[in-house]
Design a protein around this nucleic acid. Structure first.
Lengths: 331, 331
DNA sequence: GTCTATAAAGAGATAGAC
DNA sequence: GTCTATCTCTTTATAGAC
């Protein structure tokens, strides 16, 4: 039974190196963007030869997907505490603000998981995919189809599991699925929702809030929850994405834009109907940026926005078109 | 005076080749994505040597920016006819739908101009940049700052100019600024709005509609037009961007999501207040996808969505990580 | 398990002949 | 103006010695 221990030690060592690889990869992505991630750079960073990496990951892509999984878990994590907010509308507001704050705080991570490659983005959204399996037919337009009747306990379980396995800095959770294929290994993996998928869990947090909103009569009964949720998400994503890509996007403060968007979807604080409002309460105006506690945050490691811009840019290009830089050689 | 003619002929020939280069580049981008664009590929396509390209463009980047300018003009073009819609709310709805339709119909073009590189995205948005010059301070939060008082004729002029020089298929307009630096050569280029900038023109179309809306009392008087416009844009961008990047994004029909989003911002057809509604008219529900005339469109050249997905993906990777593909060699 | 060395492919950009 | 030839540099991934 001694060999057992040796085997385990070796296994631990192997795991440890795997961690180091991911850690280095994560740092590179955060500093220089995903496009600048190369096997060589990782190898240099951990002071191993490139060949060694292939003993732990079959390809660069597999590393990328592992990073994505981390990113999703990290995002989900920021949602978890907010799921306890009693009022569903306020909960959705908080989720929205947290979502944007996350994107702005971790631009490269956000880019990686939501703006880079469809296969990366799709990896953690298996649940949605399974539900709305078709491409864009008028399939689930009725009112159900997806997880209309999800109970919050289910979401809570999944959330807790995902959150537990992930540290605050985003280290890979042992239980987190790193590759795509063996999706769960926990419950059924083929047909419906994979149940411990971060994307799914987030979706459930949102839809359950929406269900409550609807049940409370604050959302038009005729509104399809899924449609609303997707449009709402798109709005948030648009704000983040533009902010990351368009140099001049929020001409005004980001908080202000987010506030207006939340008002548009949830009403200026009071009761909600279609996505409408009771027109009385507009004493708030654009001062809706009161929850500014979570907005001025340190970016991934890239400093403030204008810096992030040029930095990201040069970094990106240094890999998209890595070659030559002959001016440095020549001039 | 004969030499003049010869000079002109040569100049025409040079221009023609420049066109051919851009045309080839455009085709490559549309088919395989921007990441797959390389000088060699262009050279092969037009059957010239790579070196020749450098007589017309200083770098790959310059070609990319020329393509961006085309893309912006192309997008602006789709807006022009809609600027004549009388009702400002309906006009904004139409603009929104057209925007999304454009993004879906020309995924690679949209990616290039709005999702790729901040410098590309920023190139055509000089007007906005000039106005809100700072990065994100609470600068223009008051109510003006940008072009609050723009008249529609001004926009009309710029629009006409841009539209005239650009054919339906998106061929480079002779008058269109290809490089970044010589922004206009027409009016003042340094301080304020460059006036013939597509991004600016589009912005003006939108803000003027908003001004009318506000003047008609259908938009809360306290609402900052610029903020509203930016949030509205973000929503549309989010819908397009998610659709292009997230394999399963619109679980339901894209039109439905767009319709709900438009309702959220403009109200379900009737009068508008904050971004609210009169709660009466909800006989429409999600049947708001009546203007579906412009939605089922042929994509850039990439077929339907699911195909676009995998295709884009492999194409993208074929340049981001172009090397090796040794399985093909080996297996 | 880890390394060295290298294959195989591609990129952007330039020098200099014609 | 155009091409050939080349430089410099990058990448992923593997083979085989240790």
């Amino acid at each position: 039974m001694l060999v057992m221990g040796i085997v385990e030690r070796k296994s631990r060592q192997k795991q440890a190196l795997r961690e180091r690889i991911l850690e280095a990869a994560r740092r590179i992505v955060m500093r220089e963007g995903f496009a600048a991630l190369s096997m060589r750079k990782i190898a240099d960073a951990i002071e191993y030869s490139p060949a060694t990496l292939y003993l732990h990951f079959a390809s660069r892509d597999e590393i990328a997907q592992a990073l994505c999984a981390e990113g999703y878990a990290q995002l989900l994590e920021t949602f978890v505490p907010l799921a306890r907010i009693a009022d569903p509308a306020e909960r959705l507001r908080a989720l929205g603000r947290a979502y944007v704050a996350f994107g702005v705080a971790h631009p490269q991570t956000y880019r990686l998981i939501f703006m880079e490659d469809p296969s990366y983005t799709g990896a953690a959204l298996g649940g949605m995919a399974a539900a709305g399996t078709g491409v864009s037919g008028a399939a689930t337009a009725e009112t159900g189809g997806v997880d209309e009747a999800v109970a919050i306990p289910a979401a809570g379980t999944a959330v807790a599991a995902a959150a537990a396995g992930t540290t605050a800095t985003g280290t890979t959770a042992p239980g987190t699925t790193a590759t795509v294929s063996p999706a769960s290994g926990k419950t059924n993996l083929a047909p419906a929702k994979s149940d411990d998928d971060p994307g799914d869990a987030s979706l459930r947090i949102m839809t359950s809030a929406l269900e409550e909103l609807k049940a409370a009569g604050r959302l038009s009964a005729s509104m399809d929850v899924v449609v609303w949720a997707e449009a709402f998400w798109a709005t948030l994503h648009g704000i983040v994405a533009l902010n990351l890509t368009c140099p001049v996007f929020p001409t005004v403060s980001l908080d202000t834009v987010v506030g207006v968007a939340l008002d548009a979807w949830l009403g200026p604080k009071a009761a909600v109907h279609s996505p409408g409002v009771t027109e009385s309460s507009r004493a708030r105006k654009k001062k809706s940026a009161d929850a500014s506690a979570e907005s001025p945050i340190e970016p991934d490691g890239a400093a403030t926005k204008s810096q992030t811009k040029s930095q990201t840019q040069s970094a990106t290009k240094s890999q998209t078109k890595p070659a030559t830089r002959p001016k440095a050689t020549r001039a």
